[in-house]
C-alpha cells in the first residue's frame, strides 16, 4: 500500500511538466535494421532489371488480361479437363508414394523409436531432399524414366519425402509420452510401442498431413508439367508458346478453379479428421 501513498504525494507535488525518462538504447536493433536496409538497396540497385519496364506493366496486364479472359476459348475445355485429371493423378500418386515411404522412415527418425545413428542419417536425408527443388528432382528422374506423367508422380513422391518425413517425426515427438510409457511398463517392446501407443495417437495428424501433401502436389504437378512431365502444365506451356491467349485464359481458369476446389474439399476433410469424426 505504500506505493499508493507515495504516488499520492508525488501527484500533488509535481503535476506540471513531467519529463519523459530517457529511452533505453536499442543500438543492436538499429544496426541490424541498417545492415538489412543497405544490403537491400545494393541488391535492388545491382539487380539486372529494367525498372522502366514496370511503367508498361499496368497496360500489359490490361491488354493480356483482355486477351486471356474477355473471351476464353472453351472449345478446348474437354482436352483441358483430361490434362487436369492427369495432373491430379500425378499429384495423388505422388502423395501416396510420398506418404507410404515417409511414414515408416519418419517414425524411425523420431526420438525414442529408432537407434541414434539411424535417426541422424534419416534426418540428414530429409534435410537434403527438402533443399532440392522438385523440378530438379524431376529433371534428374526424366533421364531415367523419360518425359512422362509417371516421372512427374515419382518426382513428387520423392521430393515430398523430405518435408513429410520431418512432419512425421515432429508429430511423433510432440505426442505425450504417457501412452508409450504405459506400453513399455506393461512389458511391450519397440514394435508394441509403435503399434499400440504411437500409431493410434499420431494417425489423425498423419492422415491430415497426407491430404495436405496432396494439396501441395496439385500445385507442383502443374509446375512439373511446364518442364515436360505432361498434364495441365504442359498444355499451358504449349499454348503460352503459341501465344494462344484465349486458350491460356481458359487453362488458367481451370487450374485456379480445380486448385481451389481441391483445397476446399481437402481442407474440410482435414478438419473432420482432426476433430475425430
Amino acid at each position: 500500500m505504500s506505493s499508493t501513498v507515495e504516488a499520492r504525494t508525488r501527484t500533488t507535488a509535481t503535476r506540471p511538466g513531467v519529463a519523459l525518462p530517457p529511452r533505453p538504447s536499442r543500438r543492436g536493433q538499429t544496426a541490424a535494421t541498417a545492415v538489412v536496409g543497405v544490403v537491400l538497396l545494393v541488391a535492388t540497385a545491382t539487380l539486372d532489371v529494367e525498372w522502366a519496364d514496370l511503367r508498361d506493366l499496368p497496360a500489359a496486364v490490361r491488354d493480356y488480361g483482355t486477351l486471356m479472359f474477355a473471351d476464353p476459348d472453351w472449345s478446348r475445355l474437354p482436352r483441358a479437363l483430361f490434362e487436369m485429371w492427369r495432373s491430379i493423378s500425378m499429384a495423388w500418386l505422388g502423395a501416396m508414394l510420398c506418404v507410404v515411404v515417409s511414414i515408416p522412415l519418419g517414425m524411425l527418425a523420431a526420438h525414442g523409436v529408432g537407434p541414434a545413428w539411424l535417426r541422424l542419417a534419416l534426418r540428414g536425408l530429409f534435410a537434403v531432399i527438402r533443399a532440392v527443388p522438385e523440378v530438379i528432382i524431376a529433371l534428374v528422374l526424366l533421364t531415367v524414366t523419360g518425359l512422362t506423367p509417371f516421372t512427374g508422380a515419382l518426382a513428387l513422391g520423392i521430393a515430398g519425402i523430405g518435408t513429410q518425413g520431418k512432419w512425421t517425426y515432429e508429430t511423433i515427438e510432440t505426442l505425450r509420452d504417457g501412452a508409450a510409457d504405459a506400453v513399455r511398463a506393461a512389458g511391450g517392446g519397440r514394435t508394441a510401442v509403435i503399434r499400440w501407443a504411437l500409431w493410434p495417437a499420431a494417425l489423425p495428424t498423419l492422415l491430415s498431413f497426407a491430404l495436405y501433401r496432396f494439396e501441395i502436389n496439385i500445385r507442383m504437378s502443374a509446375v512439373l508439367g511446364l518442364v515436360g512431365a505432361g498434364g495441365i502444365g504442359s498444355m499451358l506451356a504449349n499454348y503460352t508458346n503459341y501465344r494462344a491467349w484465349d486458350t491460356v485464359g481458359m487453362l488458367l481458369i481451370v487450374v485456379v478453379a480445380t486448385t481451389m476446389a481441391v483445397d476446399a474439399v481437402s481442407g474440410a476433410l482435414r478438419r473432420r479428421i482432426m476433430e475425430g469424426t
Binding site: 506505493s3 499508493t4 507515495e6 504516488a7 508525488r10 509535481t14 503535476r15 513531467v18 519523459l20
Partner: peptide, 9 residues
C-alpha cells in the same frame, strides 16, 4: 499521458 503515468506511479 506522462502525468497520468506519474499519477499511478
Amino acid at each position: 499521458a506522462l502525468s497520468a503515468l506519474h499519477t499511478v506511479g
